[in-house]
Simulated assay, not measured.
Amino acid sequence: MRVVSLVPSLTEAVALTRPEVLVGATDWCSHPAGLDVARVGGSKYPDLDRVLALRPDLVLLNEEENRRADADALVAAGVPVRVTFPRTVPEALVELADLVAALGVSTEPDWLVSARRAWAALPEPGTLRRAVVPVWRRPWVVLGAGTFAGDVLHRLGVANLYADHAERYPRPELDELRGRNPDLVVLPDEPYRFTADDGPEAFPGVPCALVSGRHLTWYGPSLAEAPAVLAGQLARPL
């Protein structure tokens, strides 16, 4: 089997489960450290000629991260694709188990077992902190309805104030964000790299938690450590 992954979290999953089958990944696939496979461009605009040159038996995509046009082009070229789109932690665990099986592995890898245990061990959240969760600025873009990251935060006691919005990624003005009167602003370091000097100044008087974007949005081996990492970061707002 020869696998090309166009999804960083799935690249990590394959590399830690059956590294010998992974032949290609995007330029943004940064985990595990030292990953040595052919690079095929970005998630949004991969070089399909490079992908096809690797003669993959399977290409991994995500409905949100990758373009439908690229998926269609791969299918038209006769390449099997696997498209994921988890919106909750349980959905992610199911899709990861299905991926492991598709890779020909009969026993779940340790990272997946650990991820199941880590999320199952979380207590039911008590009083939820009301938060806005920007993922970009200039313009401001926030988490909206039905996002995987929103479900992750809810399980950690944080309620997304835009969870009932009609859009998955609304673009409210800053005055509207402030007008929601959040208890907390959650600022991940990807896709936009919010830092202590870039983001919190827009929300004077509101606690701002800088969190790991990888642990908030990736669904793969990072899920095993995400509850502990994010809980610690959310507990120490600026």
Rank of each mutant, 00 (worst) to 15 (best):
L161H: 08
P207E: 10
G144I: 14
D36V: 09
V40N: 12
R129I: 05
T17H: 02
A163N: 07
L112T: 05
F203C: 04
G78M: 07
D189H: 09
L93E: 07
D98A: 10
P123H: 13
A53F: 13
T26A: 02
A15D: 10
W111Q: 00
N62S: 14
T217W: 08
G150P: 11
A101R: 15
A115T: 13
K44S: 03
P227V: 07
S212K: 08
P172M: 05
L210K: 06
T195N: 05
T26G: 01
H215W: 07
L6D: 01
V113K: 10
V14Y: 03
G104S: 06
R168F: 06
A149K: 07
E63V: 06
P8F: 05
S212G: 00
V3M: 00
V83G: 02
F203A: 07
P8I: 14
R180M: 11
S30D: 13
A159W: 15
D183G: 06
E63S: 14
G157T: 14
A101F: 04
R18L: 09
L61F: 12
V135I: 10
T84I: 12
E225D: 13
V3T: 03
G213P: 06
M1P: 03
P172W: 13
V75A: 12
D72H: 11
E167C: 00
S9T: 11
R137G: 08
P46F: 15
A53I: 14
L6E: 03
W111N: 02
A101I: 01
R39W: 11
L58H: 09
L10F: 01
Y192K: 02
L6Q: 04
V186R: 07
P125R: 13
R87M: 07
P237N: 04
F194T: 11
P125D: 09
E201Y: 12
L16R: 12
A166N: 02
L143W: 12
R236A: 04
L234H: 04
H31L: 08
P139F: 09
R178W: 06
G199R: 03
E167I: 03
F148D: 03
R137V: 15
L234S: 02
A97H: 13
T17G: 07
G24N: 04
P182M: 11
E64A: 05
T17N: 02
V23G: 05
S222K: 07
V3K: 00
V132F: 04
L10H: 01
K44V: 06
S222G: 00
R87D: 00
T88K: 08
V152D: 01
R137S: 14
G146Q: 15
F85L: 09
R18Y: 02
P227I: 06
G104I: 01
P182C: 10
C208S: 12
V135L: 00
R214L: 03
R67F: 00
A115S: 08
D47K: 12
V14T: 04
A102D: 12
G213C: 10
P109A: 02
R168I: 09
W136Q: 06
L122M: 13
W28C: 00
A97K: 14
L6S: 04
G213W: 05
A120R: 15
M1R: 06
V142E: 10
A166Y: 10
N160L: 14
A121K: 06
